[in-house]
Design a protein around this nucleic acid. Structure first.
Length: 766
DNA sequence: TTAGGGTTAG
């Protein structure tokens, strides 16, 4: 063990000239490290100072440690993470000459393990002549501390081979190392070992099992272990309340709380913090408010964590005043209290108030951590305020959080959502470590920028795969949405294959995106196959497949699926009704559509919003009921909505009803005199109706008013390369061949539709 | 007489 005697400690060895005051209990100062030994070579006492200067004079020393007190001081060095003090005690023990003492060895292994000095822990461990269960368990704790489960289980195997007895402590440490999805399998093996060893009745081990299963996404197993426990203490019950709260099972959390009270246990601050936090899901503000009152009755509202949970709970239920009152009633506000208030304002759409709070924090000199900065950046992102985001970005750099992955991802998010993909990429490229979430944030930028990007997200995706970043369901969902937008079936299929390889075949998020991708790329059969393959379909899955059939004009199939959805116990939401109205509209089922629209609120409890009204205008128009459509708009809550009138103009154009189209156009241009898109639509409507002079007039008005619109573009993907075209485009290197092919196609279409009256060549745009 | 649940609020 001599090998551990650090040279750095030697200057501290000093014989004092006079006695020191006795050992005090106030060892909380973590800077204590001035070490002096009274006798050499075999000291009876250790004197130490709270002064960090090792060369301080003996008169400045404050504490004396008698030989028997060393375990107490060792605990202090662990608690205060004071390695130097621990090493001094180690040196002190060496001088005492008790190298073969197992108790001392165990304590030293524990010291170095807790301080993550695994090499030192191993040195002590290796030199111990006799080891016991505590020695092995202490060493395993070190590997658990640093998250090295491979080494931990290697040691466990050695311990097993050496026939050392595993006890409840050992099993708890092993289970601690299995609290991830990746380690779940190993956790199950340890569970088997626990049962075989008869240790499952220990409340420590059982709580570790509950924790292991819930943290590895197996709440069902956690619940089984929890329910089988004969004896539960407060900490175990608090744990289950926490886990139920995390997955939004507030009712179950409250049931555990009732069990806690009926078993005569006393709830503590953790109980209320966890429980109030659980009142943001299926359990609402009524229960949250009652628990808040109960915490006041118990006299523990002085605990900041409970107050913080109350702020968040009220904030999530939109009760801004109550949340604010709680914040100002707190005796001890901490950074979490401030962040909770900030977040509450952001989530309730009061970004300006959030920024006021942030300014106040800066004025008060409160130092922000990464979580607080992420919330502020969320505020900028929420209101798409890029300028403010840039200012916060500068502050982030000043604080040194620039390359941190969480703040970095929030920065990417704001740039991406504001359409500045280039800056989003710059932040992403500068991240010290990239995560799936940061990549997903960049993908949001691609989605926001649509087709106006040179870079191919798939190239970036492949680079990240090779760098070892695993895609998750959100990655696939976003990439599939991009493929759907590009109508690129080949790419969509390739992503489908990769999602199967990634083990996400039955994932509902990926499945739902696949349905939409296949439908938008024209393959309704594959959309339906995917729908059938999803394990645990949710409301979104049903909405996706109903929308898919609506898009393909198969209204009756969409209606059939709507009935199946209800039979399987899913409550249709606003999106379902929108999809079903579209299905009726595209399939000419206007009476059914009208009936369902009128049933939305009374039968389905779904409030109709402007999109539903838009759909109804389209439905009535397609059914030729233009007069009814105009009445419908005028009687709706949105009689002056340009969107509804634009829908009517569009449907008039589609159905060739110029009279109503002109009527609707006049209203539209009155409502939207500066919107280029409306002029183009009206102009197109005239052109479709053969009124070319009127169409030209509208274009002239546009020019006079100087309203311009970016030209619409079409594209085609060939061999993973996208080719874009605008009207009259001659920029493509193969323009001549393309126009020639188009001419042939037009002739073929005319011949096939038996309309040979106007077979002519598409004129060269030049 | 040493080792284990170590939980909370943004």
């Amino acid at each position: 063990m001599d090998t551990l005697l650090s040279n750095a400690l030697l200057p501290a060895l000093y014989v004092p000239q006079r006695p020191f005051p006795p050992l005090k209990n106030s060892f909380s100062n973590s800077s204590s490290n001035g070490i002096i030994y009274t006798r050499n070579p075999k000291p009876k006492a250790l004197h130490f100072s709270t002064n960090s200067n090792l060369s301080a004079s003996p008169q400045q020393q404050q504490h004396t440690l008698l030989f028997d007190d060393w375990p107490q001081l060792l605990q202090l060095s662990i608690g205060s993470k004071n390695l130097m003090l621990g090493q001094a005690i180690h040196a002190f023990l060496l001088k005492c000459g008790c190298q073969s003492d197992t108790f001392q060895g165990n304590n030293l292994v524990n010291l170095y393990s807790k301080l993550k000095r695994l090499e030192d822990a191993h040195l002590v461990f290796d030199e111990m002549p006799e080891r016991n269960t505590i020695t092995w368990t202490s060493l395993m704790t070190g590997y658990s501390e640093v998250g090295d489960s491979e080494s931990l289980f290697r040691i466990a195997r050695d311990m097993f081979r050496g026939e050392e007895k595993f006890n409840e402590h050992t099993c708890s440490v092993m289970l601690e190392a299995c609290r991830t999805v990746e380690e779940r399998r190993r956790g199950e093996q340890v569970h088997g070992f626990v049962v075989k060893s008869g240790l499952q009745d220990s409340v420590f081990v059982a709580t570790s099992l509950v924790s292991m299963y819930s943290k590895s996404d197996c709440l069902g197993n956690a619940e089984k272990v929890f329910n089988d426990m004969d004896y539960k203490d407060v900490q175990c019950l608090n744990y289950m309340i926490l886990e139920y709260g995390k997955v939004g099972c507030g009712e179950k959390a409250i049931a555990v709380f009732i069990d806690l009270l009926t078993s005569g246990l006393d709830p503590n601050d953790y109980t209320f913090t966890n429980l109030i936090s659980a009142c943001c899901g299926d359990v609402g503000v009524h229960e949250g408010r009652q628990l808040h009152g109960l915490a006041v009755k118990y006299g523990i509202m002085g605990e900041t964590s409970i107050g913080n949970a109350v702020i968040t709970m009220y904030g999530k239920h939109g009760m801004i005043d109550e949340a604010k009152t709680m914040f100002y009633a707190l005796d001890d506000r901490n950074l979490i209290s401030w962040t909770a208030l900030l977040s509450m304002y952001v989530k309730n759409g009061h970004v300006d108030m959030a920024m006021d709070v942030f300014s106040e924090m800066l004025d008060l000199g409160i130092y922000c951590d990464s979580s607080c900065l992420c919330t502020v950046l969320d505020a900028c992102s929420e209101c798409r305020n890029l300028e403010l985001g840039c200012q916060i970005h500068a502050y982030v750099i000043k604080l040194g959080y620039y390359s941190g992955v969480h703040v970095g991802t929030a920065l990417i998010d704001i740039y991406a959502k504001c359409g500045d993909l280039q800056s989003a990429r710059l932040v992403f490229d500068g991240l010290s470590s990239k995560t799936t979430a940061s990549f997903n944030a960049v993908l949001a930028g691609f989605m926001e920028s649509h087709m106006h990007v040179e870079e191919d997200p798939m190239v970036l995706f492949n680079q990240l795969r090779y760098a070892g970043i695993s895609p998750d369901s959100i990655t696939f969902s976003r990439l599939l949405s991009l493929s759907a937008e590009e109508a690129c079936l080949v790419r969509g299929k390739s992503l489908h294959s990769y999602s199967i390889k990634a083990g996400l075949e039955a994932n509902s998020t990926v499945g739902n995106s696949l349905i939409t991708m296949y439908a938008k790329c024209g393959s309704i059969e594959e959309a339906f196959q995917t729908f059938n393959s999803i394990n645990g379909r949710d409301c979104v899955s049903w909405n996706a497949i109903i929308s898919a059939y609506a898009l393909h004009g198969e209204g009756n199939k969409a209606l059939l699926l709507f009935e199946n959805m209800k039979e399987e116990g899913f409550a249709p939401d606003g999106i379902t009704l929108l999809a079903i109205l579209q299905a009726c509209s595209y399939s000419g089922l206007w009476e059914t559509g009208l009936y369902l629209f009128n049933e939305m609120e009374p039968k389905y409890g779904t409030r109709s919003v402007i999109e539903h009204f838009g759909c109804m205008v389209d439905l009535l128009g397609r059914a030729g009921k233009f007069s009814e459509a105009i009445d419908f708009i005028n009687r709706s809550p949105f009689p002056d909505s340009p969107m509804l009138w634009r829908t009517l103009v569009n449907v008039c154009m589609l159905c060739g009803n110029l009279n109503f189209g002109i009527l609707a156009s006049k209203r539209l241009l009155l409502l939207e005199p500066d919107e280029a898109g409306s002029y183009i639509l009206v102009s197109n409507m005239y052109a479709e109706g053969g009124m070319f002079d009127e169409a030209a007039k509208v274009r002239t008005v546009m020019n006079d008013l100087k309203v311009n619109k970016e030209a619409g573009c079409s594209w085609i993907a060939v061999d993973n390369k996208f080719h874009y075209f605008v009207a009259s485009d001659m920029d493509h290197p193969k323009s001549d061949e393309i126009y020639e092919k188009l001419n042939l196609l037009k002739i073929q279409i005319k011949l096939n539709t038996h309309d040979r009256s106007d077979v002519c060549l598409i004129s060269d745009p030049l």
